[in-house]
Design a protein around this nucleic acid. Structure first.
Length: 258
DNA sequence: ATGGTGGCACCGCCA
């Protein structure tokens, strides 16, 4: 079983990249974030024709998450009840007995902004939802753009960014809680010393070429699933295509036949 | 070098 996550930064702009990658790699699951498309405009047909069932929750201009599955799946939940902004950042699907939670955590803008408090709240709401609904013994994969780097290894210039948005202790404490509860950070588990960046800011000139990146996209799994992890990697080749996203695909393969 | 990217929808916001 193979799963992948991609902050595509506009599904419309990246649709051909996504479909080509899907057809070449045929993952069981693809989690997409920042689709930036309203549900009425979602290209459902393109995914059906590629052989995938697709679930989505979107809004105009911002945010939006979608989850594609190779075999049939069912919708469990769209958005978090406690998020009164009702931003399209959470989508939960059930697939062959596994809960698939797709998240796009708010970026936070800057630590002194209201958006940063919203980010911390969102992490709290997500934690409350997951831990009150499930046990760490349940098979759960939670993947997406968490907008939090955890350690110095996960940011290209840790001393420049320490305490800034996406590298702030209040965010790190909140993400750490998920690991303490029972989620395994699959990339770090498999590769304790690799870099593993998944995001290179468009605003840094030649940031990708100079490898000035961040590891802020994750595939997390509860222990039962994580123990079957075979491989996980970052698909850097996507960044060489025309008009790439500022993130790239992270994928994980499990030694499991469902 | 006092700017520089990108997407969306508007005439700025968010990342």
């Amino acid at each position: 079983m193979k799963v992948a996550t991609f902050n595509c930064n506009s599904l419309r702009t990246r649709l051909s990249i996504i479909l080509e990658w899907l057809q070449k790699n045929t993952p069981d699951v693809l989690f997409l974030q920042e689709t930036k498309i309203q549900d009425k405009d979602f290209p459902t047909k393109a995914f059906k024709e590629a052989g995938y069932e697709i679930w989505y929750v979107g809004q105009k201009s911002y945010n939006g998450v979608a989850t594609a599955t190779k075999a049939s799946s069912e919708i469990i939940k769209k958005n978090l009840d406690m998020d009164k902004n009702n931003e399209a950042r959470f989508l939960e699907v059930s697939y062959k007995g596994i809960r698939l939670i797709n998240v796009y955590i708010p970026q936070g803008t800057s630590v002194d902004s209201e958006r940063f408090q919203y980010k911390l709240n969102f992490l709290d709401w997500l934690y409350l939802y997951v831990t009150s609904t499930y046990s760490p013994k349940d098979p759960i994969i939670m993947a997406g753009d968490f907008n939090v780097a955890m350690t110095d290894k996960d940011v290209y210039a840790p001393n420049d960014f320490r305490g800034d948005v996406c590298f702030h202790p209040e965010e790190q404490i909140r993400l750490q809680r998920f690991f303490t509860w029972g989620f395994v950070d699959l990339y770090r588990h498999k590769y304790p010393d690799e870099i593993g960046y998944t995001f290179w800011d468009y605003r840094i000139p030649n940031g990708f070429k100079r490898n000035m990146g961040w590891r802020i996209d994750y595939i997390l799994a509860t222990n039962g699933l994580a123990s079957h992890l075979k491989d996980i990697n970052v698909e850097k080749e996507l960044r060489a295509l025309p008009k790439p996203s500022d993130h790239t695909i992270l994928w994980a393969e499990f030694a499991l036949t469902l």
